[in-house]
Design a protein around this nucleic acid. Sequence first.
DNA 1: CAAGTGACTTACCATATGGTAAACAACGCG
DNA 2: CGCGTTGTTTACCATATGGTAAGTCACTTG
Lengths: 211, 211
Amino acid sequence: MERVVASVPGRKSDTKERILDAALHLFATRGYENTSLDFLASSLGLSKQAVLYWFKSKDILLQAVIERDVTELISVLEAALSDAGEGWERMEAVVKSVFRIGVMRPELLELIREVNRVDSSASEMLVALLTPLMERASQFLQAEMVAGRFRKRDPRLVILATYSMVLGVLTDLKAMKALGEEPSVRLLVKWRQELLTFLRDALLIEADTGR
Amino acid sequence: MERVVASVPGRKSDTKERILDAALHLFATRGYENTSLDFLASSLGLSKQAVLYWFKSKDILLQAVIERDVTELISVLEAALSDAGEGWERMEAVVKSVFRIGVMRPELLELIREVNRVDSSASEMLVALLTPLMERASQFLQAEMVAGRFRKRDPRLVILATYSMVLGVLTDLKAMKALGEEPSVRLLVKWRQELLTFLRDALLIEADTGR
DNA sequence: CAAGTGACTTACCATATGGTAAACAACGCG
DNA sequence: CGCGTTGTTTACCATATGGTAAGTCACTTG
């Protein structure tokens, strides 16, 4: 409806990527059902059919967004889960990674929330993508517990709780409003620290790691 | 589409309540945009116009659901926040209340998730309803911190984190699937206990309350 | 018992939506 | 230069959706 960049109809266009970008943004911020192909297309200065040329259906578009962006997200987390040192350091690295994403590309996290909600083949895809990561995280936690560094808990609960907490702090903006806070980067930085401490107290077994 | 109970068209019908019940259920499980008035009505054996007779628009229906059900939810929490003893006991009572609701009437919590997401006047209403409760909870936490029973944290973060965590454990079923768990009451009871311990470690200052 | 009212239903409608079919423009290639 | 390919548009469509208007039917009340 505004962005009539009008790339030459000829060859080699970056349209596909631009559609994926817009879809990520709109699905995340306005919701999947609430984003029509017409709206999405015209926000790029395209007709709906151009979108349907690249992605045969809306559902397939959603799947493509997930495949591109969630895969990226997961690889970032996988990296954090592998790189950093032992025990708490590693846990901290993962949480910090998520926060970094939450600040720089909040739409990625909102997309996950959204896909988790929508009833489509896309959500199964998300589960399939997420499962190995969960499995790795679970094994990490279990190892830490056996080593006596983390309190013994059901690792799956720890994951789900942490996941919900971090995602919640980063995406539940409406709830923030009810708390009388406007979300800002400054606040998120502060809360990241507090949340890490919160998690540490909950997980780590006291061994005066330098309080 | 099936439930053609056919109450007498005459007087005094419970239709209004039945519509609210169905709306709560469908909005929570299928989402607001994804639930058409036609579908909702026919699930009650009514025509769409009967629904529009009681509620002038879909948005107003959503607001009515919130007004009826979220108010109820909040009063339950208010009660938990007032009744129980001091310190951790009270915190525990609140969390247990939420879990009780999550087990017995999961739709109530799912509705909150849903409304938090939908962009409508309804979400402002939710914020308005939730704000006083948040305020009370915040004051409670602050008092506990001053009294030296709870660790000193930003109360709003504690609320948001706890809120997200509990709601997440209770509603993020898809995430559970990725963890290889089918949600069941048995599991929830177990996780309620674990989550409480998790929270206690994070919040309570050690004073050997009977570890 | 006639008029009104409460609780619906049937008819209807404008609009939005996902999607199909076909035309069309620019380019690369033989 | 003609011709297929790629990317895109214009036309079109069936269906779904929220909502309006008016009718209907039973019961209540003056």
